[in-house]
Design a binder for these strands. Structure first.
Length: 376
RNA sequence: GGGAAGAUACCGAAGCGGUCAAACGGGGCAGACUGUAAAUCUGUUGGCUCAGCCUUCGUAGGUUCGAAUCCUGCUCUUCCCA
């Protein structure tokens, strides 16, 4: 799989590129909707494809391993066939669950023993079986198994954690090389830069990792409790070291502003649960600012959900109706809000790409950040 | 016509002499959410000149140092018997 850099801004690190996979091209900068359990919550594939215009979605190793399990996945012929998404897929390795399920897992040199959040049963995840599972899921891009370190970790812990992640990366690469894709198309393994909020650790991690000659590189362990300014400076340090000619993926980020700031600093790929989760909880992202649709002030507002929006739902439903649905806990409300937010995120990165190619990204970004900061 | 039970804040419902501006649930209002243990979670919900004060537990009186809590009348509600 190869990455073609199409344009780099003259006054910014922002880049426009094309990442080629066997399930199609991905135009960067890109946002990847999160479909943890094989579904982007509340959104059909048809909507994801035709309305939201998603080019690649995520799945999650830990969640898919527990349910439906790898027997079903293998018999289905991989996740693409199982969930009927014929474009690229990326799977996270389970590394984020080392962070998010911190209370129900035990971490050792060998790997992580999780206690299933579903039934309490114990499951060992190692770099090797994370790769094996991701081979069976069959995502186009698979991730190294890492420890996503909390943003408030002390230096000593962060250093040890990084060293462990680096040893696990070696094991991931060995396992990746020892095994083959199962379904006749290629898979890429992306290593992940950790190092918490410590510049020297990030620098060390990026320096080591860039020798992997991977198809792309990820920046992990950010937006996990640290200050945004710290996150931005970690991105700057990391991207100053990672190779120019490979895509950089900032894992789990973030708000629309976070994404623009990261693009400005040379990031190409993003994923985040925010458009779907926050959407389900009544928060809408728009080019004019954010809306809490549950607020009283929208109850009699019969203008469309987002008059500037690109999706079908934006032009069809009123804010008053969407507020009613969300407040009444009608499932359709969550669906509409999710579709709207995802379409907005896709518009945002698509427009960033247009502006980069016009070499106008910096100006456009400054203006957008102003607008996006507004609470409507 | 006779008997019984009950009336508590927006709604439902605890409370049965002081620690009650009044538990709890719902509803309302607001906030959070960043590689999804989340269609979830948190705060708040009588008024004010807010470490204090004022008005409130159907209504009018009474007992008491002190009443949402005890007594009496009245007004409504529900149920049972005729």
């Amino acid at each position: 799989m190869d990455f073609t850099l199409e344009h780099t801004s003259s006054n910014s690190k922002a880049r426009a590129g094309l990442f080629n996979t066997d399930h199609g091209d991905i135009e960067t900068p890109i946002f990847m909707p999160v479909g943890t359990a094989g579904a982007v919550k509340g959104v059909h594939m048809k909507e994801l494809d035709e309305d939201i215009k998603a080019q690649i979605i995520l799945g999650n190793t830990y969640h898919l391993y527990l349910r439906p399990g790898m027997n079903v996945m293998e018999e289905a012929g991989g996740l693409h066939k199982f969930n009927s998404w014929n474009k690229p897929i990326l799977t996270d390795s389970g590394g984020f669950q080392v962070f998010s399920l911190g209370d129900i897992r035990k971490l050792t040199e060998e790997g992580v023993r999780f206690q299933s959040h579903i039934d309490g049963s114990k499951h060992m995840f190692s770099p090797e079986n994370s790769i094996n599972i991701q081979r069976t899921i069959g995502a186009d891009i698979i991730m190294a198994f890492d420890e996503c370190t909390p943003g408030d970790a002390p230096y000593d812990y962060a250093k040890k954690s990084l060293e462990l992640t680096q040893r696990w990366l070696d094991r991931c690469m060995i396992q990746f090389d020892k095994t083959e894709a199962k379904y006749g198309y290629r898979q890429s393994l992306f290593p992940i830069v950790q190092g918490c909020v410590y510049p020297d650790l990030r620098e060390k991690a990026a320096t080591q990792i860039q020798e992997c000659n991977a198809d792309g590189y990820a920046i992990g362990g950010l937006a996990v409790g640290e200050e945004e300014s710290v996150m931005y400076s970690m991105i700057e340090i990391t991207n100053s070291i990672l190779p120019e000619n490979k895509p950089r993926y900032l894992m789990g980020v973030g708000t629309p502003i976070n994404i623009l700031e990261a693009i400005d600093r040379g990031v190409d790929m993003f994923d985040c649960v925010m458009p779907t989760r926050n959407g389900r909880n009544g928060m809408l992202f728009t080019s004019k600012g954010t809306i809490n649709i549950r607020n009283q002030k929208w109850s009699n507002d019969f203008t469309k959900v987002d008059p500037d929006g690109t999706s079908y739902v934006d032009r069809t439903y009123s804010r008053a109706y969407l507020r009613h649905l969300i407040i009444s806990k009608e499932m359709l409300g969550a669906q509409i809000a999710s579709i709207h937010n995802l379409a907005f995120y896709m518009w945002l990165v698509g427009e960033a790409r247009v502006q980069i190619k016009k070499d106008n990204f910096k100006n456009w970004k400054e203006q957008m950040v102003q607008q996006l900061s507004v609470r409507l």
